[in-house]
Amino acid sequence: MTAAIRVLVVDDQTLVRAGFRALLDSEPDIEVVGEAVDGAEAIRLAGELVPDVVLMDVRMPRVDGLEATGRITADVRLAAVRVVVLTTFELDEYVFGALRAGAAGFLLKDVEPEALVEAVRLVHDGQALLAPRVTKRLIEAYIAAESAPVATPAVVPAPDDSRLADLTPREREILGLVGRGLSNHEIAEHLVLSPLTAKTHVSRLFLKLGARDRAQLVVTAYETGLVTASSAGS
């Protein structure tokens, strides 16, 4: 029998934690192994329990979700732990910061119960969390806010970030497509490759860029200039 997915729920609201626990514990393949009221407790419990998935609120007393996410993902003992940030569309900057800190993705706090359960399974399986395009829109909003009032140029200069130095031209192309929100299947269709070849290229990007998951590849694509807010929707 396959072991249940072990989840740590982090939120400063008692009712929210209780609701998530009741929902997740009702699934035969998921088990809530702990609850934390703030980021400091989340860091401690993550180290003690080593859960598979952490559902992390952003705004909490003492230590917030961004700092806790960074501390957890930086711990080599917790390399297999996946952090999912719980947020709202009004917290774009927080979401971007969480992804940079190593979060595997995010969920809206008013997510449908079925979507929350499926998200836990997807993250545990190492897949992209929900729709990559939603992550892309949030990153676009953050970049637009950071760059205002300077307009994005119509012609984007060639990326020269040192992180891209070891990538082949094909790998740069695929990283750009990941940044635009395309799935492996969509990348394969776009480049006329087999799905297995597209998956292999993405796996190599994980290794070469030291990315924990697809969300970090999206961030890298933006930070290195392979994708911009103006080019992402093209």
Rank of each mutant, 00 (worst) to 15 (best):
K136Q: 15
A165I: 09
A165K: 15
V150I: 13
A158K: 13
E118C: 00
I174S: 04
P149A: 05
L138F: 10
A119G: 10
E146P: 00
L167K: 05
P159K: 03
Y142T: 11
Y142G: 01
P169G: 07
V134M: 09
R172H: 04
V123K: 08
A151S: 14
A151V: 11
S162P: 09
A131K: 09
R172C: 03
T168H: 00
A128R: 03
V155H: 07
L130C: 07
V150R: 14
L177C: 09
P132G: 09
P169C: 05
P169M: 06
D160T: 14
R170P: 05
A148F: 05
R172Q: 07
A145Y: 02
G126F: 03
A141P: 02
D166H: 07
L122I: 14
E146W: 03
L129D: 02
S162F: 09
R121G: 06
A151M: 09
R137F: 11
E173L: 12
G179H: 06
R137E: 09
A119R: 05
A158V: 14
A148Y: 05
E171C: 08
S162Y: 11
T168V: 00
R172I: 02
D125W: 10
R172Y: 01
V123Y: 02
L130R: 15
I143V: 08
V155W: 02
H124S: 13
Q127F: 09
T152K: 12
K136E: 15
P159I: 05
V155R: 12
E171G: 03
A128F: 07
D161T: 06
A144S: 12
R180G: 00
L167A: 04
V134I: 13
